[in-house]
Amino acid sequence: MKNNVKIARVQMDMTQAQLAEQTGVTRQTISLIEKGKYNPTLKLCLAICDAVHKSLDELFWIDKEERTDDTKNK
């Protein structure tokens, strides 16, 4: 699913590897989340939110219309 992780990470001036290290996952996982190809668990979502100092809403909320489009793409 689409999300704003990449924007938030760049705003914090962090690399994927740094975010991965802070959240305890691999860089590939962060990359897949940013591309919207992997749905993280709520636990990992919260860890990412903590790392980039944003709320769940700001990072992962997407409008209903976009959400249905996403399911079609799957």
């Binding site: 897949l32 668990t41 636990k43």
Partner: peptide, 11 residues
């Protein structure tokens, strides 16, 4: 050395 996998995606 084998490391424990912590990454949820890999698990």
């Amino acid at each position: 050395m084998i490391q424990k996998i912590n990454d949820e995606r890999l698990k």
